[in-house]
Design a protein around this nucleic acid. Structure first.
Length: 310
DNA sequence: AGCCTTTGACCAGCG
DNA sequence: TCGCTGGTCAAAGGC
């Protein structure tokens, strides 16, 4: 028994807490992608299907801290960070002049200074579970990375809820250690399975169940160094969908390796709808944190919409 | 003191 | 029934 690591669960994930921040609504393009993809009824969703028709073109996902676009794959390869940055900014501003590029600009540009960066993440876009919060049935979700690249969460459990790790197993021949988390809330039965590769990169996150309580945002914020109460207002203003957005943004910020490595595609699967990925308001903090990273850390999140079968 | 992680053991489902 | 695999339990220990 190793013990240790306790008290907030930061030990395993090393890097300091990464707050979230901001608040922005999803563009119509994103909403359209979210409207139907998820199974709100019951069964687990099937593995990520081929990119839906909308992805064949250009879809802008606009997040407070992660502004990116689904680029045609052929366009991705030659892209440098600077190019991606430029492209993101251009598009985002074109779509919405008031949009303020956050992580994308700060992080990518930072990398652009040193060399070209791996922009592969842009090939895959993580699904936005936002609208999914409308589904009230038991739910679970999956964040699944591709074999060639994956994401690393500084704290996989840090999605706004409080989790307690209750087990870990080496599955798939020991190639992928899998961690099991429970929501620490009294009557909440939500569980989360985090599967990561040998190098510590998270390749899959599976949520099961639905939280029966509100997200303990303030506590999390406090842990992260404090966050304005405005975020609660934000949550309240945005309603349930916002919760998903914020939670989602948690993931958006997390694909930043401690050493600054940019990580790869992230695919999300949802089961039974999802309240799990919903969150209230890490936006502001996230924004701050993104700016705070200056030791080479950079994050790129690919967000792919994973339509539910049918 | 409380909460958390770690980790071996236990249990259930499946071929 | 047996073995494998995956999920969970619970004791030990750290913060």
């Amino acid at each position: 028994p190793g013990g240790g690591g306790g008290g907030g669960g930061s030990g395993l994930w090393g890097p300091p807490p990464m707050p979230s921040g901001g608040g922005a609504q999803f563009p119509a393009a994103v909403e359209s992608l979210l409207d139907g993809p998820f199974d709100g009824g019951g069964g687990w969703l099937l593995p990520p299907p081929p990119p839906p028709p909308p992805l064949s073109g250009t879809v802008l996902l606009r997040y407070p801290q992660c502004d990116f676009e689904i680029f045609p794959e052929q366009d991705l390869a030659p892209l440098t960070a600077q190019e991606v940055h430029s492209k993101c900014i251009t598009i985002s501003q074109a779509e919405n002049p008031s949009f303020i590029p956050l992580a994308t600009s700060s992080l990518i540009s930072r990398h652009a200074n040193s060399s070209s960066v791996n922009v592969t993440p842009l090939q895959e876009m993580l699904t936005l579970p936002s609208q999914i919060s409308n589904v009230n049935t038991e739910s679970s979700g999956v964040l699944q990375g591709l074999p060639t690249s994956s994401i690393v969460l500084d704290r996989p459990a840090d999605d706004g809820y409080n989790w307690r790790k209750y087990g870990q197993k080496a599955v798939k021949g020991g190639e992928y250690p899998k961690s099991y988390y429970k929501c620490t809330h009294l009557n909440c039965l939500v569980r989360k399975n985090v599967e990561h590769s040998a190098d510590g990169r998270i390749v899959q996150i599976i949520y099961r169940g639905q939280h029966t309580h509100e997200r303990p945002s303030k506590r999390r914020f406090k842990d992260c160094g404090g966050l304005p109460d405005d975020l609660d207002d934000f949550s309240g203003n945005m309603g349930t969908s916002v919760r998903t957005q914020s939670d989602y943004e948690d993931y958006c910020r997390k694909p930043i390796l401690p050493n600054g490595t940019m990580v790869g595609p992230l695919v999300e699967k949802m089961e039974d709808g999802d309240d799990q990925l919903s969150g209230s308001s890490d936006n502001q903090e996230e924004r701050d944190d993104e700016v705070r990273i200056d030791d080479g850390s950079a994050g790129d999140v690919n967000e792919r919409n994973v339509p539910a079968p049918g």
